[in-house]
Amino acid sequence: MTLTATGNKDLLRLRLDGELDHHAASGTVRSIEEALRIYVPRALTLDLSGLAFMDSSGIAVILKAQRRACELGASMTIENVPERPRRVLEAAGIDRIVNLI
């Protein structure tokens, strides 16, 4: 799993590449939290276009990112969700509680 941060105080974009499973989850959460601490953005976008695999451990990561962003008063949006991770989000009903575009 690699995480690439771009952007500024207005909008922080985090691009996730690789397989987001339980093995990768805690490291990914730490990286997201660190990026939020450094940028303190007004809005956060998770770009999932590079996700080759995701299971329910990834759902927990996304919900945690959303909570952290919310604590900072930032809104969170998820972009470019590939077909297969999208089906996992839909099966879990998470597509209804996060802002997916």
Partner: peptide, 18 residues
């Protein structure tokens, strides 16, 4: 059951549902 977990906020409780 959906969302049942004993794993706290690290888990989503959606494994069996999936």
């Amino acid at each position: 059951e959906p969302m049942f977990t004993t794993g706290g906020e690290e888990r989503s409780g959606m494994g069996f549902t999936i």
